[in-house]
Design a protein around this nucleic acid. Structure first.
Lengths: 196, 196
DNA sequence: CGGAAACTAGCACAGTCGTGCTAGGAAGTC
DNA sequence: GACTTCCTAGCACGACTGTGCTAGTTTCCG
């Protein structure tokens, strides 16, 4: 019986309804009633899948991390030999198209809420560790990091560039369109390379 | 009659009460009642100074931008001859102590809310332009930018590092304590310098 | 078929919300 | 003294909130 699969599927559908509401009305708009209406179901049904509202928001946040992570892994797996795979992997977490933009919006909204919600904060911290590790991984590519640079510090710096670009591309799309964000990230990686 | 001075003073007091509530309970906690209680006054009095709740939040946001800006200007004015004045100016917008941490928390919370509140978004955009200009200014210091680097792109990159560090130092203080954030920022500026 | 489990639906409760509104007190001007 | 303006206080309203709860519906197993 593929019960658990169906259940997970249903939760994802509802989680994405949460996204749509958050994108339209912000986290405060993500009430049980609004989400249920958006998903075309009832309050009671929604509460069958998510006992409390916090459950719902936490799931929406794990969904962001999980989807971004899946894309990154896919890029890394699909481009074994390409030399800009690091850049292309990092681009997967920037809001460069509508899908990633939605994720980034939800991420930012929930990151802010995590300031006063410890359970969300734990999720946020976990995905932050993930991203920092991704940055470190990218810098371990052959020739990616010039001799004399401190790998730990450079990973932290790259991660700062990445999240800074994410925030700016999201909030100031006119000043920092997708191409420009990509260009800045590429320039940063280029500046770290061994330029023999 | 120093009425306007008193009035501005009163509004600032109430604005800082908003901060305290936002830091404790997040933006959703910043209801008219809660802020009035925090400020030790009544709903009616609060509504005399701020007609609507949006007024209140907008003012709290301008207060952040204004205070950070004042500190940056003070640093730039006080250190005409020091060669790390750029670094020290930029540090003023990082959450390196309790005061700046409070500002950054409020900034992040309101930035997220600005995603669905156009009037807040206008304020956020204005202060973003300010900060980008500050980055560009710092890079125009003598010797700050090596020949061959694109000033516009480097300003955008520096701004990304700055906001990225701000978010990370705020949300992951254990992984990125004040000294470390300062160190990463200094390393970034150093990497841009003319190293003749 | 019967029965159980999974799921959906939505009412009810107690609470918080923003804001309109009136009324009282304080301070300043004549 | 009266009069005006500024400020404070808080009630009242309708709307919305999360969650406990019961009842109905569908789906699956034997």
């Amino acid at each position: 019986m593929p019960r658990t699969v169906d259940a997970e599927q249903r939760r994802r559908e509802l989680g994405e309804a949460v996204w749509r509401v958050i994108r339209r009305d912000g986290v405060p708009g993500a009430s049980v009633r609004n989400v249920a209406r958006e998903a075309g179901t009832s309050m009671g049904s929604l509460r069958h899948w998510f006992t409390t509202q916090d459950d719902l928001l936490r799931f929406a946040m794990t969904l962001v991390a999980e989807r971004a992570r899946a894309r990154v892994v896919a890029v890394l797996a699909a481009s074994d030999t390409v030399d800009d795979r690091g850049l292309r992997a990092l681009e997967e977490v920037l809001p460069l198209d509508e899908e990633r933009r939605a994720e980034t919006e939800v991420w930012l909204a929930l990151t802010a809420r995590a300031l006063v919600d410890p359970r969300l904060a734990a999720l946020r911290d976990a995905s932050a560790e993930d991203l920092l590790a991704l940055c470190a991984l990218v810098l371990r590519e052959p020739g990616a990091l010039r001799a004399g640079l401190d790998p730990g510090l450079e990973a932290e710096r790259l991660y700062a560039v990445l999240d800074g670009l994410a925030v700016h591309a999201l909030t100031r799309p006119a000043a920092l369109p997708a191409d420009r964000a990509r260009q800045v990230l590429a320039a940063h990686l280029e500046a770290l390379r061994d330029t023999r």
